[in-house]
Design a protein around this nucleic acid. Structure first.
Length: 426
RNA sequence: GGAGAAGUGGCAGAGUGGUCGAUUGCACCGGUCUUGAAAACCGGCGUACCGAGAGGUACCGGGGGUUCGAAUCCCUCCUUCUCCGCCA
């Protein structure tokens, strides 16, 4: 969440930035939070003063008891009892105000960066880059779900049988291609200096809160009630949470991690042709890159991550474009997000395959991930960033569709050493 | 899954109701000494919030309770270790 300090000290800027989300409620939330903050601090200072009195009196009692002056001790006790009843009230008030304050703060999304366009929906996103030539397929061109069936790459029906819709079974060359992509992405990330981790696929509540999935967005995650755990919607959650409650040294930054994991999303409310084939799944594979950076560096780091994803798409030979998301289309925790979309020719659709975001201090404030500049005593919140590099299913969809001809599908050259075959044929 | 033991500052390790936010050692930082280093000696050495400051408050695995007062007592959860069972 945003820090109260930021709202207090730079309220106008905060409101300005939040306005880019086109959510009329937000201004009210900010004012509410600041009011509650003042109230909280008023109660807190009164409570702490009383607490100090009690502490002092308790010490006196201790001294008196040791000296055997029981009567004098009893006299102080009655005085303390009065103060205590007052502190009880204050504690109740404090809890209530603090609860309200937290509730409001949890509803305030990250403040978009100054360069983020104001807007309500995907229509207001801004295309900032595009590359690659859109392939022109002949009449014979098939959408990927038909190609998957024709060449026995993916068995959607089998997935339905053993689990349900959105859980495909990759088979034969399809499975092999999937694994090739994972290895290719991981190798590229390693080369770019990201240290590989294999995190748990299931996380606890604290982790969900740390990266912003909880509270309020439980509906997106699969929940294991018996153990109070959540299936991860992205490796971002476990990997970023490795740094929860951690104080780093300046010299540790930037931290660069990457990880491959399956991702699980309930995608409640999705329907129709959006979910056809590989377009939207409940379980999918993704390689994620994560960085933890100094605040002054974070936008440079964001650019570096964007460049990394560009490289991947170019090596795969996929036409793509980059969108800077508008305020209204960005995720709750993000300050800036670039979405990457590849063109999937047979569907004639742009498919989102990566989302690269700078969360600034929004996540680190929840995570309590701080760093200390060399020689300084004070700690400061780090900036966290992450991006998909890349999400597999839509990449696979685009590869199948764009690289098809009448007799088969060509495997991109960079993948051949991983797949062991150059073409998929009937 | 069953039985037992334990969780204290970066690490080690004291502390079982009253100046304990916490003895001590190591590590670390600064200084003295030294040609330099080591050793020795002196000093410093957790986090967060409130406060202009002095200072105050909170935190000894998490949460709750008893008490004027809790690291210390009680309840509960979590984790680790040992033994048994089961198992890739």
């Amino acid at each position: 969440m945003l820090t109260l300090q930021y709202l207090r000290e730079q309220k106008e800027e905060a409101l300005n930035r939040l306005a880019r989300r086109c959510n009329k409620e937000l201004e009210g939330f900010v004012h509410k939070a600041l009011e509650l903050d003042i109230e909280k601090r008023k109660i807190l200072s009164e409570l702490e003063n009383l607490q100090a009195e009690v502490n002092k009196a308790s010490k006196e009692i201790g001294t008196l008891m040791r000296d055997g002056k029981k009567d004098a001790a009893e006299a102080i006790k009655t005085r303390v009892a009065e103060i205590k009843s007052r502190t009880q009230d204050l504690k109740t008030d404090l809890n209530s105000v603090d609860g309200d304050l937290n509730a409001v703060m949890y509803q305030i999304p990250n403040a978009p960066h100054k360069d983020v366009p104001t807007g309500k929906s995907a229509e207001d996103n801004e295309e900032v880059f595009s590359a690659g030539k859109l392939p022109e397929l002949g009449e014979h061109a098939l959408p990927h779900w038909e190609l998957a069936a024709k060449y026995k790459l993916i068995d959607f029906e089998m997935g339905v049988k053993i689990t349900g819709a959105g859980f495909p079974v990759y088979t034969g060359a399809g499975a092999r291609l999937q694994r090739a992509l994972i290895n290719f992405f991981l190798d590229m990330a390693s080369e770019a200096g990201y240290a590989e981790v294999i995190p748990p696929l299931v996380v606890n509540e604290d982790s969900g809160i740390g990266t912003g999935q909880l509270p309020d967005k439980e509906g997106q995650m699969y929940y294991i009630g018996e153990d109070d755990l959540y299936l991860i919607p992205t490796a971002e959650v476990p990997v970023t949470n490795m740094f929860r409650d951690v104080i780093l040294d300046e010299g540790d930054l930037p931290v660069k991690k990457c990880g491959y994991t399956p991702c699980f999303r309930r995608e409640a409310g999705s329907y129709g042709k959006d979910v056809r084939g590989l377009n939207r799944l409940h379980q999918f594979d993704k390689v994620e890159i994560v960085q933890i950076a100094q605040p002054e560096e974070s936008y440079k780091v964001l650019g570096e991550m964007v460049d990394h994803v560009k490289t991947l798409l170019e090596k795969l030979g996929l036409p793509y474009r980059i969108l800077r998301l508008c305020g209204g289309d960005m995720g709750f925790a993000a300050a800036t997000t670039y979405d990457f979309e590849v063109y999937s020719a047979a569907q004639d659709k742009w498919l989102e395959v990566s989302s690269v975001s700078n969360f600034e201090a929004f996540q680190s404030n929840r995570l309590k991930c701080r760093y200390r500049k060399a020689g300084e005593k004070k700690t400061e919140l780090v900036h966290t960033l992450n991006g998909s590099a890349l999400a597999l299913p839509r990449i696979l969809a685009a590869l199948l569709e764009n690289n098809q001809d009448e007799s088969g599908i060509a495997v991109p050259e960079v993948l051949v050493s991983y797949t062991g075959f150059e073409r998929i044929e009937g």
